Simulated scan of single mutants.
Amino acid sequence: MSPVTLPEGDWIRGISIRQPYAACILAGAKTVENRTTPWRTGWVLLHTSKTIDQPALRTPLIARTIRGRGLITGAVVGIARITDCHADPEGQPLCSQWAHPGVWHLVLQDVQELPLPVPARGQVVPWKPSQDLLDRVFQQLPGFRP
């Protein structure tokens, strides 16, 4: 198996997401992530925060989506591509059942779950992953081409 040749420079960031929302993204159901500030489009590592939003586990939409999935915390669990970042106009319907009013919506596509989580520390803001972390993540995705 040959190693993945990744682009040089600043082409990928990390995004930390609380569980169970990260599991909903990996399941393919949640295609919008809500943020208070806009993000640029491009590739992101999907990192799970160390905390779990316990009340969210009782939300029927979330409970149905994550049934049978583990809620891994404190690790990179996948990658995704942000293809759009927008705020829905006030008074208009939201772009997704997962979207919240009054915040920025990151539209996620090309989600790929890692076979094995990679333990890592994240941050609330977009963060730049180390080369070692990228190596460990993309070792598991030999067919990935940005």
Rank of each mutant, 00 (worst) to 15 (best):
S2N: 13
S2W: 10
S2L: 09
P3S: 03
P3M: 09
P3I: 06
P3F: 07
T5K: 10
T5D: 07
T5F: 06
T5G: 05
T5Q: 08
L6D: 10
L6S: 12
P7H: 08
P7V: 12
P7D: 08
G9C: 11
G9D: 08
G9F: 11
D10V: 15
D10W: 11
W11H: 14
W11Y: 15
W11I: 13
W11L: 14
I12M: 07
I12G: 02
I12T: 09
I12E: 05
I12A: 00
R13K: 14
R13I: 12
G14M: 13
I15M: 12
S16L: 00
S16F: 01
S16I: 00
I17N: 10
I17C: 09
I17H: 12
I17L: 13
I17P: 05
R18Y: 09
Q19F: 08
P20L: 09
P20N: 06
P20R: 05
P20A: 07
Y21W: 04
A22G: 09
A22Y: 04
A23I: 15
A23G: 14
A23C: 13
A23F: 12
C24A: 13
C24L: 05
C24P: 04
C24H: 03
C24W: 02
I25R: 02
I25M: 06
I25V: 11
L26W: 00
A27F: 03
A27N: 02
A27M: 01
A27E: 08
G28D: 01
G28A: 05
G28P: 01
A29T: 04
A29R: 06
K30D: 02
K30P: 02
K30Y: 00
K30A: 00
T31K: 01
T31A: 01
T31P: 00
T31Y: 01
V32S: 05
V32F: 09
E33C: 03
N34C: 10
R35G: 11
R35F: 10
T36N: 00
T36Q: 09
T37F: 04
T37C: 04
T37G: 03
T37H: 07
P38G: 12
P38T: 14
P38A: 12
R40I: 14
R40S: 15
R40M: 15
R40P: 13
T41N: 14
